[in-house]
Design a protein around this nucleic acid. Structure first.
Length: 880
DNA sequence: CATCTGGTTATTTTT
DNA sequence: TAACCAGATG
């Protein structure tokens, strides 16, 4: 560990004078450079080192900057060494970003921050050092969801549970949920444990955990849960870490789940009399208020559990403060110097177990906490910020912040209605092209959708337009089948007892070892209580298998023996290449004619390349599942297409937000399942979307959308109504839908909406809608009944740009015909004759192989083998 | 053991 | 609509 030379570490005097607070220290030194550019609030957040601090950092207020500066400050003040600062993030990306920025700030000190990482990687690391205490070995495998489900399927089969009625995925979800809430099998409320498999859910969870130990494996949830168990059952270990970490920093605190909360709580608990750590002494002086310490963690679990266990009734009001009287159980030791940074308005992972409550109740949980609000936004222009703020103000469960900017008002947020989703895509495509003509880079443009199925329409459109785009998100790198397969090979080599890995690749590529063979291996293994691989070795010596299978299996075993031997002589990267090659795995994909085969081979190459960063196979396998994420090169100029969820933390000059319709956004399902809390989370999602935009935010809704194949008529999202009229401009769809301006045509839907409750759902109205929809070749109506209940947004609010009637006009009376569009397109094409001609065989990144059916300038119509007929710009395909 | 077919089911996905 | 999966078929 290298000590940063600039930040010579002074031993922290154990008896730092109380008066020598931050202010005094700060005065002693000239303002360090890293503090210079901070605004007063940021600076306070950086300099308030002692006691619990909650930094409420709104979107674009310099959250990461505060975190990194704070670390720099701690180091330069000599308050802790790099190894004494625990700094947790959720994503690898965030961790990397912080390391990078710290590096820039401090010179090469980053290597010295061993405890900066994600919850899971840090949890995993601690777990590996004390693995034996939780019945694991230090080289345990981290299972991915796939492995989990496979394992659970086996357990279900063993229990004779119909996995049709009780799918393994569902159980995996339940277990994950329990783990997120910090519940070990014995702690799961019996009522909940009973919901699965006729009361056997809890039992299955328990046997799943047992199986994991036998396999020497942990799933993601275990990385934290087992850590908590470790800390609870081994006070000495806990104390070791409590003493080590003088400062704790948490990023995105609003996204922490109960397990993470408990973990933090355990670590942030200062030791009582057992130890005499320097930092604690300091704190005690600072924290008169902290004398009222927190309750025992155990209590908290129960309390939390009870809370979360309560069915999330749709209509349940916000949780009243469930804190019971804390009684006599007081401790004298205050919590450590913990600093949590987050934004309650950006909590969008509730469905993943995140507890907004953690941030809402911070002051409760960490008495004496200082709360600092960062409200100066450095990202968006005035109108955008105002719109976002006004929207989010409709939420009740929030701590409340008021974002402000010193930037110009800029352009108003626009709202555009179109006839259907296709037209929406067309309109957005055109606007993007216009932005491009005006000199904007496509890299500065993003389309953020609520659900990934919405992306398709855009992809289709962009492919025809020849507009480069990139999809962000989607399956993670290490979740891809080919990566998992490759890893399974390596895992089997590394740990012959990894049954799940072996099972995964035993017949990949196909070698004639099907279900029957695997089943018999299983039986054998179970009978003798040996790993599958050993069972295979034994079975090959018998004549229980058909000769063909026996031969194949023998060969596979021989291969593994060979590879294991080669481990001694070849580097791990070489070994990987050898394995992928000799196993026939690469061949398998090379022979594959599907569109994504090439990409998969690339991924495999990327995997091998990434192995170089690790010392050996063991090290690689330990980290891969935690660290591997494709960040994909963002070099080429292209529009970014992603879900709102994956947009969190990003920003773009121009942000397009399509699909603001009831049912889609806010999502009907969330509303049904989570009620008011769900609506608020959706609203936060909207807020996140808007605040991604630096200069232009453009919202869209379509009147008709195809959902699961059938057309339904939709109504604009209530969120549109919640925008402040002053900052919003209603524009007309470029796609040609008549929508907007006063003096429009036809009655506004909102005319109806005025007396909504009754008339909206009338058969007549529905018929009218259906008729309109039919023009598009589909049925209207159908979803109304369902929506009716909560479709009433705040139409009456004076602020609403829609309530003043007249704006939302009948859509698409004079919908522009496709011919016009077509004409425009052709006009835009380069006119140069394509190098392709009829019947050419071509390959397209997305659609795979096909042959050219029609050539118009540089526009081709191609009949793809798999994807059907598509119009594509020739630069998107290559000769096959 | 591989391939075909019909029935089912449709969000969001940090690790 | 389309994509995925489980069971049936060859």
């Amino acid at each position: 560990m290298t000590e940063p030379n600039k930040l010579t570490h002074r031993e922290v005097p154990d008896h730092q004078p109380a008066a020598g607070g931050i202010a005094a220290r700060a005065r002693a030194t000239a303002t360090p450079q890293y503090l210079a550019g901070l605004n007063p609030e940021q600076r306070e957040a950086v300099e308030t080192l002692d006691g619990p601090v909650l930094v409420l950092a709104g979107a674009g207020t310099g959250k990461t900057r505060v975190l990194t500066c704070r670390i720099a400050h701690i180091l330069s003040q000599g308050r802790a060494r790099p190894g004494e600062i625990l700094s947790v993030t959720f994503t690898n990306k965030a961790a990397r970003e912080m390391k990078l920025r710290l590096g820039q700030m401090l010179g090469q000190a980053v290597e010295g921050m061993p405890w900066l990482g994600t919850f899971h990687s840090i949890g995993g690391r601690i777990l590996r050092t004390h693995a034996e205490l939780v019945q694991l070995k230090s080289n345990f495998t981290v299972l991915d969801v796939d492995d989990q489900v496979r394992l659970l399927k086996q357990l279900l089969a063993a229990e004779n549970i119909d996995d049709k009625r009780w799918p393994a995925r569902m159980l995996a979800g339940l277990i994950d949920g329990w783990k997120n809430r910090g519940l070990t099998p014995s702690q799961v409320p019996s009522g909940e444990a009973a919901v699965f498999g006729n009361g056997r859910g809890g039992k299955l969870y328990a046997s799943y955990q047992e199986r994991l130990k036998i396999l020497n494996a942990a799933d993601f949830g275990d990385l934290l849960l087992e850590n908590i168990r470790l800390f609870r059952e081994h006070a000495d270990v806990l104390r070791q870490y409590q003493n080590r970490f003088k400062f704790i920093l948490v990023d995105e605190y609003q996204d922490t789940n109960v397990a993470q909360y408990l973990w933090l709580r355990l670590l942030s608990q200062a030791q009582g009399e057992q130890s005499r750590p320097s930092a604690d002494v300091l704190e005690e002086r600072h924290g008169e208020a902290m004398a009222t310490s927190q309750s025992d963690p155990g209590e908290r679990v129960a309390e939390r559990a009870a809370k979360t266990a309560a069915p999330r009734d749709a209509e349940t009001p916000p949780h009243p403060d469930p804190l019971p009287a804390r009684g006599e159980r007081r401790r004298t030791s205050p919590p450590k110097n913990i600093c949590c940074v987050g934004d309650d308005d950006q909590s969008i992972y509730g469905w993943r177990g995140a507890e907004v409550d953690n941030i809402l109740r911070f002051e409760h949980d960490f008495p004496g906490a200082k709360v600092i609000r960062l409200e100066r936004n450095y990202r968006s222009t005035g109108h955008i910020l105002a719109a976002a703020s006004h929207l989010i103000a409709h939420n009740e469960s929030r701590l409340g912040k008021r974002l402000r900017t010193e930037d110009v008002d800029g352009e108003k947020v626009t709202v555009t209605g179109s006839w259907d989703s296709e037209e929406e895509a067309r309109a957005i495509g055109e606007e993007i092209e216009e932005l491009q003509r005006a000199g904007n880079h496509l890299n500065d443009v993003a389309i953020l959708v609520r659900a990934s199925f919405q992306m398709r329409e855009f992809e289709d459109r962009f492919v025809t337009l020849g507009l480069p785009y990139r999809v962000i998100g989607g399956p993670r790198f290490y979740e891809r089948a080919e990566i998992r397969d490759a890893l399974a090979y390596l895992r089997t080599i590394n740990s012959p007892a990894d049954d799940l890995a072996f099972e995964r690749i035993v017949n990949v590529p196909k070698r004639g070892l099907g279900d029957a063979t695997v089943q018999m291996l299983h039986d054998h293994a179970r009978k003798r209580r040996i790993p599958l691989f050993e069972a295979a070795r034994a079975v090959v010596e018998t004549d229980e298998l058909k000769p063909k299978a026996r031969g194949a299996l023998r060969q596979l075993i021989a291969s593994f023996d060979r590879w294991r031997a080669q481990r001694e002589v070849a580097s791990h990267t070489e070994l990987a290449e050898i394995v992928l090659d000799e196993s026939g795995y690469t061949d398998m994909w090379q022979k594959d004619r599907s569109a994504d085969a090439a990409g998969r081979l690339d991924n495999l190459k990327e995997l091998v390349r990434s192995m170089e960063e690790f010392e050996n196979l063991q090290g690689f396998l330990e980290h891969i599942s935690l660290v591997m994420d494709r960040d994909g090169g963002a070099e080429a100029d292209a529009v970014s297409l992603m879900t709102l969820h994956s947009a969190k933390g990003l920003e773009f000059d121009n942000v397009f937000l399509p699909g603001w319709e009831e049912g889609l956004f806010p999502s009907q399902r969330t509303l049904d399942e989570q009620g008011r809390a769900g609506l608020e989370e959706e609203r936060r999602l909207a807020h996140v979307g808007l605040t991604r935009a630096r200069r232009r935010a453009k919202l869209y809704f379509a009147t008709n959308r195809r959902i699961h194949g059938t057309w339904s008529t939709t109504i604009p999202s209530r969120f549109l109504d919640e925008l402040p009229a002053h900052n919003v401009e209603i524009t007309e769809s470029r796609g040609g839908a008549g929508w907007g301006g006063a003096g429009g045509y036809g009655p506004s839907r909102f005319d109806n909406a005025e007396s909504f409750g009754s008339s909206y759902a009338t058969p007549g109205w529905q018929r009218a809608q259906a008729n309109r929809a039919r023009g598009q070749g589909g049925q209207g109506g159908g979803r109304q009944e369902k929506r009716q209940g909560q479709a009433r947004g705040s139409f009456n609010e004076d602020q609403s740009p829609f309530s003043s009637r007249g704006e939302a006009r009948g859509f698409a009376r004079d919908r522009r015909g496709p011919m016009v569009i077509e004409g425009e397109l052709i006009a835009k094409s380069t006119g140069t004759v394509s190098e392709f001609s009829l019947r050419d065989r071509v390959f397209h990144q997305k659609f795979g192989y096909g042959s050219v059916v029609k050539v118009e300038g540089n526009k081709l119509t191609i009949a793809f083998e798999k994807a059907g007929e598509k119009k594509v710009v020739d630069s998107f395909v290559q000769r096959a």
